[in-house]
């Protein structure tokens, strides 16, 4: 039971990040290495608002998430928009530079110390033999709710329709009167806001540190590729699969925790060898 809980928590965090990553990939066709940095920014911003500005942690989070979303849009406007149509390699290297700069901005402002949110320590609840804290239950519930909202947005709104159309064929979407640049902005906003949410959840679960975004980059990419790059539902499934794989590997197969990223990497290599298009194939939004 403990394995299931731990896996679900991990999957919730990975899933939120993987969905954002895969959406940006789907529209702009490049692997955004700066994506997980927004998780770090989100966590630190919420921390700033709650412990320095005196807001409650939850209010701080609610403000931080859209702010990070806007930051994502801004980043696209200032940097990535100028490189539309460049080779994916150029975009990847650029995103790496962005991630390096942003991560160190955080480090310059807040230092490298490990911090944590000012929340009371909850006692774990015993459910069917596994321990889980109310915060952790909250993390899983929030991730599921957000994914459902995302699904409704994608399929039952005009915006979702134009997002799917743009993903399918940019020129066709433009010809049908969809402002694709606006759609791209919305996708950046949602993607980076999701990342911020994931970062805050990770911070609530454990701690906040400048490396947290970078440390999770390999599992997030593995989950994304596992589900098929560009496929948000695949990304969710990939995150779930990876969450379980990591925790089962550590608990049942006694893989040393130090090698946790190696599990993600092993699965990544395996998937790339067997099914490069991921378990759900390439289907776009």
């Amino acid at each position: 039971m403990q394995v299931i809980f731990n896996s679900l928590i991990r999957a919730a965090e990975l899933g939120l990040l993987a969905v954002g990553l895969t959406m940006v990939y789907d529209l702009l066709k490049f692997a955004n290495f700066s994506h997980t940095t927004f998780a770090t920014i989100g966590a630190y911003l919420a921390l700033l608002l709650s412990s320095n500005a005196g807001l409650s942690v939850y209010l701080g989070a609610i403000i931080a998430i859209p702010v990070v979303g806007l930051l994502g849009v801004l980043l696209d406007k200032v940097v990535f928009k100028r490189l539309r149509g460049s080779s994916p390699v150029i975009l990847m290297i650029t995103s790496f530079g962005v991630s390096l700069a942003l991560r160190n901005v955080i480090r310059a402002i807040w230092g490298s110390d490990i911090r944590s949110f000012d929340i009371p320590l909850y006692r774990g609840i015993n459910i069917l033999g596994g321990m889980i804290t109310p915060i952790q239950i909250g993390i899983i519930v929030i991730a599921i709710v957000v994914m459902i909202i995302f699904h409704i947005l994608l399929h039952n709104t005009r915006l979702g329709k134009s997002m799917r159309a743009t993903s399918d064929n940019v020129s066709l979407a433009q010809a049908s009167g969809i402002e694709t640049e606006k759609v791209i902005q919305v996708v950046w906003f949602i993607g980076t806001a999701f990342a911020a949410l994931a970062g805050i959840l990770m911070g609530l679960d454990t701690q906040v540190q400048p490396r947290m975004g970078f440390d999770i980059i390999i599992p997030v990419f593995s989950a994304t590729i596992l589900g098929g790059l560009g496929n948000p539902y695949g990304a969710m499934l990939g995150a779930l699969a990876l969450g379980f794989a990591e925790n089962i590997g550590i608990t049942w197969f006694n893989i040393p925790t130090g090698y946790k990223p190696a599990i993600a990497f092993g699965i990544l290599i395996l998937i790339l060898l067997v099914r490069p298009s991921g378990i759900m194939g390439k289907k776009g939004l």
Binding site: I90, T94, F96, G97, L100, A101, R103, N104, R107, A108
Partner: peptide, 17 residues
């Protein structure tokens, strides 16, 4: 140390742009 890294990151971005 962080500022130097920011500069390296920006350098990569600016060269690419």
């Amino acid at each position: 140390a962080s500022v130097r890294m920011i500069a390296i990151g920006l350098l990569i971005v600016l060269v690419m742009l």
